[in-house]
Design a binder for these strands. Structure first.
Lengths: 234, 234
DNA sequence: TCAAAAGTGTTCTGCGTACACCCATGG
DNA sequence: CCATGGGTGTACGCAGAACACTTTTGA
């Protein structure tokens, strides 16, 4: 496969567990003989290949590096500052691993939001809380922060929350997700009132089990019905 | 100036006159000896130069090709389909004019919205109504349509409308702009009620002149006050 | 019987919407 | 005095926000 050493793709994969939003990072291989930057983390991404569309490159790269499949990636920005491939040791690492003389790279950035529990990922990957990221290589911290802004915007209008829930879920779980991703508090009476009006959320004839409090009803998201109207959720 | 033959920028400049939304296009030079595609139109754009940031490249390119200065350009998407440089005669034209062996180009797209009357533009440029564009080179028709979607979205939340109005304007002018860009009808009583609540729109002690009907009051947009709150306009 | 979370209804306020008439000017 | 567009107010319905108590379960 022919790489194009001028353009890359990077994927910011958000996930949700234990009430916090996380990003999927990759441990850059520790290299002997090079002290600096040995253990840095990076986003899954790579140079694109010559005959591939950008979106396809992003999807393939993500699968190769993390094991994730069938993920919808949204392109949200491009980063092309001629000085973005700093510090020097990061650039050297890139030249070594790609086997190409790399100079300036414009990167096309994608993001997605997935359920951590479902995802089968390789052992080089790490889910790291977004709110206290270490220093990543190149401008990847910046790329993550921009993705987060985009995610929050989309969250209001698209049914992203259901990506994070099991098929059957309680309204409390749904509310928790809104609260922590958007970093707000919601009144549960008002929240439920609003939810009840959405005809694409259907109540199941089942309840939670084995909880030591009143068991909650289970609901599911009916994507068919949702597609018909494009109404903001919250 | 060193060109990078792998990455380009393209600018979709929208303008408004005679009640319709227009795009700024450039006549590709008619070339003798080449029948095909002689008179095609294109967006202002070009390959980026090696040491320049993407945004800077876009601004510079726009000025060079159209004469427009001090325009805020918003990056909204990237187009990188390996087959986008079709048809063949368009690609040949690009190689000839850039003097480079060009193969695949990923283009970063920007858009903006300006007042046509103000703009000093060179004589190779043409303002063309968006709703009946001819066939442009490469995938530029597609790039324009994507820009239009983004423009309409932004129009609700950002004070873009004032870019299209003179410093002093009437509420009718403002309403006309909303109606035609968003392609909707507004009730003028309700529209004015809403506008009156915005404290960053200030009434001037002046009126329209030389109209053969009741002259309208003039208003101005107070950007200072607007910056303090980021409220959607409509 | 206790702890813990589920579940429910009312009131108030502000916003969007529908709708019809008089006013000031130039010709 | 007429044509033209400027300018205004009211009433209704819906949605968001504030707010407290009862219910069901497992331990």
């Amino acid at each position: 496969m022919n790489l194009n050493p001028h353009i890359s793709v990077d994927c910011v994969i958000f996930g949700f567990s234990e009430g916090t939003l996380k990003v999927l990072l990759i441990e850059r291989e520790k290299e002997k003989g090079l002290q600096v930057g040995g253990h840095k983390l990076k986003l899954p991404g790579s140079l694109i290949s010559e005959q591939e569309d950008l979106d396809t490159s992003a999807i393939r790269t993500l699968t190769e590096l993390t094991g994730l499949k069938n993920i919808f990636l949204k392109q949200y920005s491009v980063f092309g500052d001629p000085g973005r491939l700093k510090p020097m040791e990061d650039l050297e690492w890139l030249c070594r691993t790609s086997g190409m003389k790399v100079d300036r790279v414009v990167t096309v950035a994608y993001y997605s939001l997935i359920k951590i529990s479902d995802s089968v990922i390789t052992d080089k990957t790490i889910w790291h809380p977004v709110d206290k990221l270490p220093e990543l290589i190149f401008d990847h911290n910046h790329i993550v922060m921009e993705a987060l802004l985009n995610l929050r915007n989309e969250f209001h209008t698209k049914p992203l929350c259901f990506e994070l829930l099991p098929k059957k879920f309680t309204l409390r779980q749904l509310q928790d997700i809104f609260e922590s991703i958007l970093n707000i508090k919601l009144d549960s009476r008002n929240f439920r009132k609003k939810i009840r009006k959405l005809d694409y959320l259907t109540e199941l004839p089942e309840k939670e089990k084995n909880v030591n409090h009143k068991p909650a009803k289970l609901y599911k998201f009916d994507r068919r019905r949702y597609e018909k109207k494009e109404t903001p959720l919250i």
